[in-house]
Design a protein around this nucleic acid. Structure first.
Lengths: 167, 167
DNA sequence: GTTGTTGCAAATTTTTTGCACCCAC
DNA sequence: GTGGGTGCAAAAAATTTGCAACAAC
């Protein structure tokens, strides 16, 4: 027996693929080989990525399914709508990350090496609600990025008499 | 006497234009009519704007200075570097706001009407430092946007039995 | 068989760049 | 006068779209 639930029971989807397929079905959209390939590629590893990187991963080697650039873009939008991906814009391109089966978090962004580090704190939720209430807003989400320089990038190579940005 | 300080005293700039000119001089860049026109147009009103809107404002009517699109983009970058403007990306385009002589704040963004509302709280600074310290980050700034639906957009036209996103 | 989906090529949108002429210093 | 700045046109980069062929239901 490979499944825990029989067909007549209420199905609680556990994998991103399942959840995406439910989303598609609920909208009368089709489960295609391309969409399957994209979701599986995305959730095969937990990293931040952009459309171009994903396309590269889908096209490298001999894949059984061909996926084009427009389809990648279209499917990324669908996955975002389905609540499986979160999008943010960094340096002019859209960067995605998993937003399913993964705790809510925010980011530290190193302006020097581009590294994106996740952090989590419960303080943001409270703040979010407080602010929203004060303005009569109904919150659907938030995005917070702290910009700066990460530890390894701020290790000085040589002793400097003045910081870089004053030169 | 129109100035409070003599030429030999340390100058404390008060207007955005002055500050930008100091920035330019410190970099060996020139104070041109175009750059002047752009700064003055931007700081003549306190609103969020994007490159296209600004260009429109600079070109409408009979202006004494002609400013082209590339110059607008180049100057916006300079103003950001000078610390006079803050940039954020919303809906695929860069949106700017004043970042000089104006208190630090963040935004509520209405996903329905696109309205951008400023809010301020001292809680974010503390949070920022706390998180940064924990990760060995040197913070240079942050950006926080709360997404949702504003009060006027969430006023129901008719009584609905189910929320929109379930249809 | 219908109707949504895909790939292709082309279009769009936003922003940047090369370069000859121009002007601030 | 000299070197940075500007406008123009063109390029670049990211993303979207029209459409005919295709495939999921």
């Amino acid at each position: 027996m490979t499944k825990q639930f029989s067909l007549s029971e209420v199905k609680v989807s556990s994998t991103p693929t399942e959840r995406f397929e439910e989303f598609l079905q609920s909208r009368g959209m089709r489960i295609t080989r391309q969409r399957k390939a994209i979701v599986e590629e995305i959730f095969s590893q937990h990293e931040h990525f952009d459309a171009e990187v994903l396309l590269g991963r889908l096209q490298e080697g001999e894949q059984d399914v061909k996926v084009s650039r427009p389809t990648v873009y279209r499917t990324l939008n669908e996955l975002e709508e389905a609540g499986l991906l979160r999008k943010m814009v960094l340096g002019g391109r859209s960067v995605y990350e998993h937003d399913y089966g993964y705790p809510q978090h925010d980011h530290l962004y190193c302006e020097r090496c581009g590294d994106l580090i996740e952090f989590q704190t419960n303080q943001i939720d409270a703040l979010r609600e407080e602010v929203a209430k004060a303005h009569g807003f109904r919150v659907t989400g938030h995005r917070m990025i702290i910009f700066g320089v990460c530890q390894s990038c701020s290790v000085p190579r040589k002793r400097r008499s003045r910081p870089l940005d004053l030169i």
